[in-house]
Write a protein that binds this DNA or RNA. Structure first.
Lengths: 243, 243
DNA sequence: CGACTTCTTGAGGAGACTCAAGGGTGGTGG
DNA sequence: CCACCACCCTTGAGTCTCCTCAAGAAGTCG
C-alpha cells in the first residue's frame, strides 16, 4: 500500500522488477497524516528524515530576507519531500501541506541501504533527482525570460501534465488547489498582477480559473503561447545496473 | 592526474578512501581540449556521455523560443557536464566553453558501474547533484524576488566562493571570465541594465568591474546587501554506505 | 589598421509594483 | 440559521524598475 505512490514515480523511467518493488516497500517507515496548512519541514531547522508524500499536495518554498518567499516546487503523491536538504546541516526549504496529506518517513539510513543493496533503484533515484533539477531549470527560464501570462499558462500546463501521470483520466477542467498567491510566489510576481493577467487569459478565451478549479478552453493555443518545450524521458537506460 | 579535479569535488562532503580515489580515476575516459567558444554539447541533440571538466570554465544555457537564453550554470573544474541530460532522450542544455578547456569523458556505462561497484561514491554523486539543485533553487529565488543590484552582487559572491573551494588563495580581486552579457543572461535582465547597475555598485563603493577582473571593495556591505544565505555542507553523513 | 565584441549613455515607453479599498466565499460560533 | 471573520480575489491610481531602440566609445584580435 505505502509503496504505491513511489512505485509509480520510479516506474516512469524503467520497469520495476519484483525485487525492486519489495525493496521500495521496505524503505517506508510509519505513516502519518497532517491537516492542510501544516508545516512538514521548516527551513533552517536541523535536517531530519525525508518523507514520501502518499496523498495530498504540498509546496516547498525558500524565504527571502525582505519578507517574500519563492515557491520552488509543488509536491504531489509519490514525491520524496526533504531530499534536497540531505547534503546540508539545516533544512533548505519550508514544506507546507496544501490540503490534508498523508506521508511516511523514509529514513536516511534506508536511503544509505538502498545505495548499498539495490544499485538499480539507487540509480533511478539519482535520475529522478536529475529530472527535478531540469524542471527547476525550466522554471528559472520561465521566471527569467518570459512574460507573466506565459508563466501562468506554462505553470498550469505543467501541473496538469504531472497530474496526468498519476491520473490519466483528468480532462481540460480540473481541481486546482493553488491560490493565486501561490502562483504569484512561484513565478515571481504579485497577486495583484496574477489576478489581472488571469483575466486577460480568460478574455482571450484561453483558460478560465474559478476558485479551486481551472478550465483550459483552448489547449492548442495555450501550448503555442508558452512555447512548449516537451522533454521525453528515456526508457530503460542501457547503463542501469541490473537487479 | 585526470581524477584530480573530481576528487576535490567529491571530497567536499566526505573524506575519500584510497579505493574511492582509484575508482574515480578509472571512470575517466580519454582527455581532450577545446578552444574558448566551443560547443561542448548542444540542446536537442541526442544524449551522449557526460564529461568531467578538468580545466577551464563553461556555461550551460537553455534557449528561449523568442531568441533569448537563460544561463543555468557556470561549470568549473571538477564539475560533471551533461549529467542533467541523462534522464532524457535529447540534451537539455547547451554547454559552451568560456575559455580554453580540457575535459575527459565519463561514459554512461562508467556511471552505471559506479552505482554497482561503489555505493559510497554513488551516494556522494547523488548528494552533489542535490547540492546543485539547491544552488539552482537559490538562483531562482534571486531572479524571482530580488533587485538587479542584489542579483549581480550575489552572483559575484557565489562564484568567488566556488573559486575559493579550489583555490583558497584568491583575494578580493580576481579574474572574472564572464562578460556582462553572460551575467545578464544568468539573472534575467538586459546587458544595458547590468551595465548601469554595475556602475551604481561602483559608485556606492561596493565593487569594481573592469573587463575580465572584479574587485570587491566592501565585502561585508556586499554580503549584507544580498542577504547572505550561507549553507553549510554536512560532513561525513552517517548514513553513507561504507566502502 | 580594420572588424569585432564589449561596454556605455540617452530618451521614451511598457510592465509590474505599491498602496489602498471593496466584494465574494466559506467556515465558525452564538 | 444568521452574523461575523478570515481569506481570496478584484479594481483603481500613481510610481518605479527595467526594457527597447539607437548610437557611440573602448578595448581586442587577426
Amino acid at each position: 500500500m505505502q509503496g504505491q505512490a513511489a512505485t509509480v514515480r520510479f516506474a516512469s523511467l524503467a520497469r520495476l522488477k519484483r525485487d525492486d518493488i519489495r525493496a521500495l516497500r521496505e524503505m517506508a517507515g510509519p505513516t502519518s497524516r497532517y491537516p492542510a496548512g501544516s508545516f512538514l519541514q521548516v527551513a533552517g531547522s536541523p535536517v531530519s528524515d525525508p518523507m514520501l508524500l502518499l496523498d495530498g499536495w504540498a509546496i516547498s518554498s525558500l524565504d527571502v530576507t525582505e519578507g517574500g518567499r519563492q515557491i520552488v516546487k509543488v509536491h504531489m503523491p509519490g514525491d520524496l519531500v526533504g531530499l534536497t536538504s540531505l547534503p546540508f546541516t539545516t533544512c533548505v526549504d519550508t514544506v507546507i501541506a496544501l490540503n490534508d496529506v498523508q506521508v511516511c518517513t523514509v529514513s536516511q539510513a534506508a536511503i544509505g541501504k538502498l545505495f548499498h543493496n539495490n544499485a538499480r533503484l539507487a540509480a533511478l533515484l539519482f535520475l529522478i533527482s536529475l529530472e527535478e533539477r531540469v524542471m527547476l531549470a525550466d522554471r528559472l527560464v520561465m521566471v527569467g525570460r518570459t512574460a507573466t501570462s506565459q508563466r501562468i499558462a506554462a505553470l498550469i500546463l505543467q501541473l496538469r501534465d504531472r497530474m496526468l501521470r498519476s491520473d490519466p483520466s483528468i480532462g481540460l477542467s480540473f481541481r486546482f488547489p493553488l491560490t493565486q498567491l501561490h502562483v504569484a510566489d512561484m513565478i515571481g510576481v504579485t497577486t495583484v498582477h496574477v489576478s489581472r493577467i488571469v483575466q486577460e487569459l480568460a478574455n482571450e478565451g484561453l483558460l478560465k480559473w474559478e476558485r479551486g478549479k481551472v478550465t483550459i478552453l483552448d489547449i492548442k493555443a495555450l501550448q503555442l503561447w508558452v512555447g512548449t518545450t516537451s522533454r521525453e524521458l528515456v526508457q530503460e537506460p542501457t547503463w542501469l545496473p541490473l537487479p
